[in-house]
């Protein structure tokens, strides 16, 4: 569905991604894990057209989308839930959702259906639909951010750090809803610092380390990979002979 080859992205003189290749197949949940500053968010921004890569290839369903602006990428069916939610705080919940469906704002019936679907997945949002989005709690804002992206009817959903700053209970709720969206047929790429959480819900995973992918595999095997666990716990070894 999405395939990326040799992606190089820089912020000014700093190379953030140094030749990243990865792919996502229809129906998968793929986790991209790695420490802070590994380049996860940069990758997401590049896929969604916010950043221009130096070189490389991004193909969505066979089409090269590397030069496409964000709106065209949304139109093709890729939506990003950005890090830190980035909801439209002064607007109401409903307005946020309507804007999610901005590119198909004429399709009133479809929007209505999707709103119903979203409200059934996130009943909290229905309760608060006329409230200013900025007044929602962190978890509700995350739900809103996901729901807003869903309103564009994407086929591929990019989730950037959905767990950031959420209480464990709320996190469970969010993860469940992600699984639910996947069951609805949505393919998902999830970027997480909370590696174990992301690997629990995903099918495959990639490990990004300072702009390079150093490991990939099924989530089950990555979850048990000592390197991943060490990275997750923030403990590294000093001597190769350590037991």
């Amino acid at each position: 569905m999405l395939s990326i080859q040799n992606l190089h992205v820089s912020y000014g003189p700093i190379k953030v991604l140094k030749g990243v290749s990865l792919h996502i197949d229809q129906g998968e949940i793929v986790a991209l894990i790695g420490a802070n500053g590994a380049g996860k968010t940069t990758l997401m921004s590049t896929i969604s057209g916010l950043l221009r890569p130096q070189s490389g290839e991004i193909k969505f369903e066979g089409q090269d989308i590397i030069k496409f602006p964000p709106d065209k990428i949304v139109k093709l069916g890729i939506s990003l839930v950005p890090e830190g939610r980035q909801i439209f705080a002064p607007l109401t919940v409903l307005e946020n959702l309507e804007l999610g469906a901005y590119l198909r704002s004429k399709d009133k019936k479809g929007i209505k259906e999707d709103l119903d679907k979203i409200f059934s997945i996130f009943p909290k949002l229905k309760e608060r639909k006329n409230q200013q989005a900025g007044t929602l709690s962190g978890g509700e804002q995350q739900m809103l951010a996901i729901a807003r992206a869903f309103m564009a009817r994407p086929r591929l959903l990019l989730l950037d750090e959905p767990s950031l700053g959420l209480a464990p209970m709320v996190l469970e709720l969010i993860m469940d809803s992600i699984l639910e969206l996947n069951k609805e047929g949505l393919t998902i790429l999830i970027v997480e610092q909370n590696a174990i959480k992301a690997l629990e819900i995903s099918t495959r995973g990639y490990v990004l380390e300072t702009g390079r992918i150093i490991l990939q595999g099924s989530s089950n095997e990555l979850k048990e990979d000592p390197d991943v666990i060490r990275a997750y716990l923030g403990k590294d070894y000093e001597e190769i002979t350590e037991r």
Binding site: Q5, N6, V20, S21, H23, R212, I213, Q216
Partner: peptide, 11 residues
């Protein structure tokens, strides 16, 4: 193969 090769070389 591109992915596998790159990750093993990086590793």
């Amino acid at each position: 193969h591109t992915e596998l090769l790159q990750s093993v070389v990086n590793r």
